[in-house]
Design a binder for these strands. Structure first.
Length: 914
RNA sequence: GGGCGGUUAGCUCAGCUGGUAGAGCGCCUGCCUUACAAGCAGGAGGUCGCUGGUUCGAUCCCAGCACCGCCCACCA
């Protein structure tokens, strides 16, 4: 074996024998090499401007990888790998989120299976139970991300409940409290009876339900009749404290200031005037329940009305509801109240009513609005700088529209954020009480008699600190200096408000810096049938089943198993099929990715097993026009790929690379190169060096998107010393377990043929414009067009694919490339001979087919006629267009000129057809 | 109720600043051509949702309409 092929014999044998790429055999092994070499961990050196950082949206500790993670991870990994290849210290901050409610619910369910409730074991034991759960289940998502090839800094994992992180959270709470931005208030909140906790506005979703609208008569105190109100929640009448009408509503103006008597209760209700009341809705008279309706709450405060809580936090009626109803659930109370009213003949009508009601995003239960003492964060002052950052272009969404507007609209109408949660799992508030005293501080106050607030913080509160708390903030750590502010935050649109905007607000407020500058928003992937992907609906697809094979979920009626497409295939498929638009999951794109991996593998076999030994990749060895052509095309794809990736257009990059590699490199260049490659009688150095260079460059360009297969093939390449030592350190140096070439200690290639570095840290190519060769592109473009034309003709004329047709080239502009036309169109070119039996127009002239048994011109006559008709149609159209004076006068000159030459071309073609 | 997005080949989707459209899969025909049948060659298939308008010219710009979807919102 020659020096420059530092690949062990049995590995070469594998390359020779394997005609199919098997991702399952390769991917885990390649991943292990990266990890061992330490490529995922950059040392905290340099500053944030030179380094590149992405904070991963931390998955829930107990979560499993779903399609959204797979897509987002593919995007982030591509960007991180790109940056790493560009020589930047690339840190992909890794960690998981404690996910308050989600995790607590899971552990509660586990307890329930044992027949116990969390109250049975107490708070401390319960929290310990959650930690245990995390130790058991927390690693699953990590393994899944690894299987995907995500180059996260796994060794530096964070958890939002780590001690250091918790310190940061307490620090923030105290700081914002002292600034007056966090405060405690008795206010109307969204009470979720399912989780028995208050939740924020963002965790409420509207669901349409079928309801009944009741018309209830409230007698007037004066005895002169009654006033009728409409409600869908009769049980809340027990907490009514007024009736409101619109001041301009003539039906009721005389009643304003009067008093009605609340049925069943007997409370005196003032009739007040308020603009809020719509005259045309219901009866135009609105019962006011400040304790259980957000609107009524506002109206109540405006009019100084009493606030009565008739429904408690347990969802049952309180003593304030009266003896008859206390203890009933709200639903029971409704039936009872209606029954009682009917007895007194006070229900004057009902009608079916479909409307949206607020429900808990978490538990699904209908929100019970009630007044509660909770902690709030005032967002108004935090929003200003976050708005300015976007308006001044310092923070950019991709695509800009519509997300910039969505973000700004929300911030401009922002409301206070209820941050306290009545849960056990989470960051307990750093707040202590003793009588009327309140202490807010990182530590418990001195002295006896203090009790700590049992509530915890909304999970999103701690998530909002993610980009800096993970790096050691508020301490001044090397990590913080090296990696903060970060660069990119990639996510789907559903957490722009919940997370992105809050990170921006708190990041600016606390660190004085924007936590990141670019926010690519990616597709939400729907099930193949267009519904949401959801496990419970049976519409979910497990990414791991696509990678390693697994059962098709119920959305696929045909059932069966997914083939083991591999991680690279899934990555390609997701990137290629996603944009900013929601998309249906498209298995075909994953298949396309698998096929591309396979194509890479086989094209590499052709090249690696065929090239002259001892030759290194080089772009300077071109000897034929097709060499200059492919090198030129290579520079163009290099330029386009970098541009697309830098604009976060991963889909365009993936598809463009596919097209280049498959259609240009494999279909045309490899075919043109074969004669030289296979001719052992001549010096094959030039073609070998060029082929190797094409492969080398293709692997680099594809690596961010398909890291495993490219890394695997890279290991077979003889090396050329274009790689610089990498900036970040690494552990490396241990004994490799397989037959792969050793990874140099300190990683990165120093360039010796036997000590090649990993592709993961190889240099990202920069397009070299000097290799753009318009002449070669023109020439080879002609050959391609001519070959295609001839193949079509042959096929239509029924010529056997294997037959060689005698022919004469009667066209200009094929110097130095006619042999490709001859070979790829299966011709035998002659200069002399009989009269042409058929003439096929090609760029620059025609190819004349000479009479032969293999070819019957009559068989193609019909097809020729069809073609003539098409041409005539085109010619007529163009003639009309060019005869149209306004067009010739007003259209740009080059457009008109283009149409003219098109017309000339068609005319020439038609003439040749005879 | 307000806002946003979508409607392009049988399916899933591309299409930058206007010059009559592309990909993958599927389909048809022919090839086991010494990298790859997860392949190769060729082909069929679209009045770019509808109606107007601007323009020499519109899938692309404007207006209206029709469906589909999403987000926001305190009408009982």
């Amino acid at each position: 074996m020659a020096d420059c092929r530092p690949v062990a014999d049995d590995r070469l044998k594998l390359l020779e024998e394997r005609t199919r790429y098997v991702p399952g055999d390769v991917e885990p092994r390649v991943f292990e090499r990266w990890e061992r070499a330490g490529v995922f961990h950059p040392e905290p050196e340099g500053d944030a401007a030179e380094n590149f950082t992405i904070p991963v949206p931390p998955p829930n500790v107990t979560g499993v990888l779903h399609m959204g993670h797979a897509l987002n991870s593919s995007i982030q990994d591509s960007l991180i790998r790109l940056a790493r290849m560009r020589g930047r210290r690339a840190k992909w901050i890794f960690g998981t989120d404690h996910a308050g409610i989600a995790t607590q619910v899971k552990v509660e369910e586990a307890l329930a299976a044992e027949g116990r409730r969390k109250e049975d074991i107490g708070r401390d034991a319960f929290v310990e139970r959650v930690w245990e759960w995390r130790r058991e289940h927390g690693s699953q998502i990590v393994e899944q991300l690894e299987r995907l090839g995500a180059s996260l800094d796994y060794g530096d994992e964070r958890f939002t409940m780590d001690d250091a992180y918790a310190r940061a959270v307490r620090h923030v709470f105290v700081a914002l409290y002292e600034k007056g931005l966090i405060y405690r208030d008795n206010y109307m909140v969204n009470w979720d009876p399912g989780t028995r906790s208050a939740i924020s506005d963002l965790e409420v979703e509207q669901r349409e339900i079928q309801d009944t609208l009741y018309m209830i008569d409230y007698p007037l105190e004066s005895g002169s009749g009654s006033i009728t109100v409409a409600t869908v929640r009769p049980e809340t009448m027990l907490a009514d404290t007024a009736i409101a009408v619109n001041p301009s509503d003539e039906r009721y103006t005389r009643l304003i200031g009067e008093t009605a008597i609340l049925p069943l209760v007997g409370r005196r209700l003032p009739i007040v005037a308020d603009e809020y009341v719509k005259t045309e809705f219901g009866t135009g008279a609105l019962k006011i329940t400040p304790g259980h309706d957000p609107n009524d709450f506002e109206i109540g405060r405006r009019h100084g009305l009493e606030e009565i809580s008739a429904i408690g936090e347990d969802g049952r009626m309180t003593a304030a509801a009266g003896e008859r109803f206390a203890g009933l659930t709200a639903d029971e109370a409704r039936r009872e109240v209606v029954a009682a009213l009917r007895e007194q003949d006070l229900v004057s009508g009902t009608q079916p009513y479909v409307h949206d009601v607020p429900c808990s995003h978490r538990s699904g239960m209908r929100i019970e609005p009630l007044i509660s003492l909770q902690w709030f964060c005032d967002m108004g002052t935090l929003a200003g700088p976050a708005i300015a950052a976007v308006k001044e272009g310092r923070l950019r969404f991709h695509p800009e529209s519509p997300w910039t507007g969505v973000y700004l609209d929300w911030l401009e109408g922002i409301r206070p954020w209820c941050i306290s949660r009545q849960l056990w799992w989470g960051h307990q508030l750093p707040v202590w009480y003793r009588g009327d005293e309140v202490h807010v501080g990182a530590q418990a106050p001195a002295g006896d008699g203090w009790t700590r607030d049992p509530d915890v913080l909304d999970t999103w509160f701690s998530s909002a600190l993610w980009p800096f708390a993970t790096l050691g903030w508020p301490d001044d750590t090397p990590e913080l200096r090296a990696f903060y502010p970060t660069d990119v935050l990639s996510t789907a649109r559903d957490i722009i408000f919940l997370w992105v905007a809050r990170m921006v607000m708190l990041g600016i407020e606390l660190t004085g810096e924007l936590p990141f500058t670019d926010v690519p928003i990616h597709s939400v992937i729907q099930a193949p049938d267009g519904r949401r992907m959801s496990k419970s609906l049976g519409t979910g697809i497990d990414p791991l089943d696509l990678i390693d094979g697994g059962p098709r979920p119920p959305v696929y009626k045909e059932g069966g198993e997914f083939p083991a497409y591999g991680a690279d295939a899934l990555r390609f498929g997701l990137l290629a099929s996603s944009s900013s638009q929601d998309v249906r999951f498209n298995e075909e794109r994953v298949k396309q990715g698998r096929d591309l991996a396979n194509k890479l593998w086989n094209a590499s076999r052709l090249i690696l097993l065929g090239v002259e030994e001892g030759v290194a990749p080089s772009p300077d060895a071109a000897e034929a026009p097709e060499d200059r052509w492919i090198l030129s095309r290579l520079e163009r794809i290099t330029e386009r790929t970098a541009a697309a990736l830098d604009r976060f257009e991963l889909s365009a990059a993936a598809l463009d690379l596919y097209d280049f590699f498959w259609s240009e490199l494999c279909d045309w260049y490899l075919e043109m190169a074969k004669p030289r490659l296979y001719d052992e009688s001549r010096d094959r150095t030039a073609v070998s060096a060029t082929l190797l260079f094409c492969l080398d460059r293709s692997l680099r360009l594809l690596h961010p998107i398909m890291p495993h297969v490219t890394e695997e093939i890279w290991g077979f390449l003889p090396h050329v010393s274009t790689d610089r030592p990498t900036t970040s350190g690494g552990s490396g140096g241990r004994e490799p377990p397989d037959l792969l070439p050793p990874v140099a200690p300190g990683r990165g290639g120093e360039g010796s043929a036997s000590e090649r570095g990993l592709l993961a840290v190889a240099e990202w190519p920069v397009a070299d414009g000097s290799r753009i060769d318009d002449e070669a592109e023109e020439l080879v473009g002609r050959v391609i067009a001519a070959v295609t034309e001839l193949r079509r003709y042959r096929d239509e004329a029924g010529v056997k694919p294997s037959a060689l047709l005698p022919a004469r080239l009667a066209a200009d502009g094929y110097d130095g490339a006619a042999q490709h036309l001859e070979r790829l169109a299966r011709l035998e070119l002659r200069s002399e001979g009989d009269a042409a039996a058929a003439e096929i127009p090609v760029p620059g002239g025609a190819v004349q087919l000479l009479p032969t048994d293999a070819f019957d011109p009559d068989a193609a006559a019909a097809k020729v006629a069809e073609r003539r008709e098409r041409l005539e149609g085109e010619i007529e159209r163009l003639e009309r267009k060019l005869a149209n004076e306004p067009f010739v006068e007003r259209a740009p000159a080059e457009v008109v000129e283009g149409e003219r030459s098109k017309l000339a071309g068609y005319r020439a073609d038609l003439e040749r057809l005879g």
